Measured scan of single mutants.
Amino acid sequence: MDPFVVLVLCLSCLLLLSIWRQSSGRGKLPPGPTPLPVIGNILQIDIKDVSKSLTNLSKIYGPVFTLYFGLERMVVLHGYEVVKEALIDLGEEFSGRGHFPLAERANRGFGIVFSNGKRWKEIRRFSLMTLRNFGMGKRSIEDRVQEEARCLVEELRKTKASPCDPTFILGCAPCNVICSIIFQKRFDYKDQQFLNLMEKLNENIRIVSTPWIQICNNFPTIIDYFPGTHNKLLKNLAFMESDILEKVKEHQESMDINNPRDFIDCFLIKMEKEKQNQQSEFTIENLVITAADLLGAGTETTSTTLRYALLLLLKHPEVTAKVQEEIERVIGRNRSPCMQDRGHMPYTDAVVHEVQRYIDLIPTSLPHAVTCDVKFRNYLIPKGTTILTSLTSVLHDNKEFPNPEMFDPRHFLDEGGNFKKSNYFMPFSAGKRICVGEGLARMELFLFLTFILQNFNLKSLIDPKDLDTTPVVNGFASVPPFYQLCFIPV
């Protein structure tokens, strides 16, 4: 058959498939802009700032609406009420993970971030239990974070109060905490193996944040037939998995079943207990991918939040002064901060919360999916439909947070200066898919920041009023603009 005829037939089939998918069930789905064949609503979305586009569309179609990214149908949730109703009140029905062709290629359905069903539930339950087990290797997770915080302070001392970009050092600290939990080992910041790991993690975040990856996920045929950065992403992930597998083999040879040292040991012990169960989800494949998931999810998000926190503290020296006064009063100079201190430091706690609220790190979270046909607000959402959640619409709700575009710790303080919780605080998402490392991340943010401010004054290279804190939105995360500062020993 003539190649031209084959091409026309293929394009015609794709067009018909697109029209059929977009028209099927439209009477039951939430409203939304009319999609174009094949490309859907992509032309109506700013790929570099999806969150802003969703906010604009919500003003037209309401808090629940339908979009098509290519052939992929998505239902968008915008605003606290619908997000709570879906992710919390109907948590089980909305607990699936959205379709990610690239991740599915890399992870093969294993791990904790992109798995679904029984596998996801069992691996998540085990990971939560293990991360909360403060007795691994007779050292609590808090001990590990405190140790890394001391190392971080010593690295900052080496800058000798000269101007520096904190990106690298602030990236090393949370990565080392995860390494300590998974591998029972922290690395020197100049260790070549550690630097290679950091390089792969950072490069992957840069790649994932590009519009090209959005295109690959919406048109998965590209993955096999086109060159691009997605190939580098898959190569980096394969490198990390190979490295983790080597460490798993080392653990198998040296493990003491009665004295687990780290996450890998705990997983291997669980595998041993379930070795007679042919349906067990505790396999080497799941261990390797879960460890890679924890490394990827637990490094860049925390380091970016820390980097943004220091920029905001530079911009608002009056806030920094209040935090340091609270540190001096509650902790002093002669001991290290600990998590028990947080309950006695409402202002510092409010500042950490406000940093996370203000920066809105992951504006749309990772997409969910419905696990069955769901009736939601008089609409029928078919099983498997991807759910896109606007966390921006919750964290920047102007009824809950007056002047949401302003950095103001009073958003989390009552009139008496006591810490005030808010149900709208969802930087880790909400419901059954809430970030498994939430507790660890909150511990790291509090301890790293208090250790830094206990030991250093922060000095800006320019007038604080002239510092730009506008986030650089890159399609996946909101990151701070480049800046330098000086760490002046107190």
Rank of each mutant, 00 (worst) to 15 (best):
D2F: 09
D2M: 11
F4E: 04
F4K: 06
F4L: 13
V6M: 13
S12P: 09
S18L: 13
W20T: 10
S23L: 10
G25M: 12
L29A: 07
P33C: 00
P35M: 04
I39M: 08
L43Y: 10
D49G: 08
D49R: 11
P63S: 11
T66N: 01
T66E: 02
L71Y: 13
M74S: 07
L77N: 00
K84Q: 10
A86Y: 04
D89H: 07
E93Q: 15
F94R: 01
G96D: 06
E104I: 09
F110M: 12
K121Y: 08
E122T: 11
R124Q: 05
F126L: 07
L128P: 00
M129L: 12
R132V: 10
N133S: 15
I141Q: 07
I141Y: 15
Q146A: 11
L156W: 03
P163M: 10
D165P: 02
F183I: 05
F187M: 11
D188H: 10
D188E: 13
D188A: 11
M198I: 10
N202K: 14
I205Q: 15
V208C: 14
S209Y: 11
T210A: 09
I213E: 05
Y225E: 04
H230F: 08
N231T: 15
K235E: 10
D243I: 15
E250R: 11
M255S: 05
D256R: 06
I257D: 10
N259K: 13
P260W: 02
P260Y: 03
C266Y: 15
C266I: 10
Q276Y: 14
S280F: 04
L295W: 04
L295K: 01
G298K: 01
T305L: 04
A309Q: 02
L313G: 01
P317W: 05
T320P: 06
Y347T: 03
E354Y: 01
Y358D: 00
L366R: 04
L395Y: 02
D397L: 01
D397V: 01
R410G: 09
F412K: 00
M426G: 01
K432P: 15
E438L: 07
L461C: 14
P464W: 06
D466L: 12
T470P: 09
N474T: 12
N474E: 09
F476S: 06
Y483M: 07
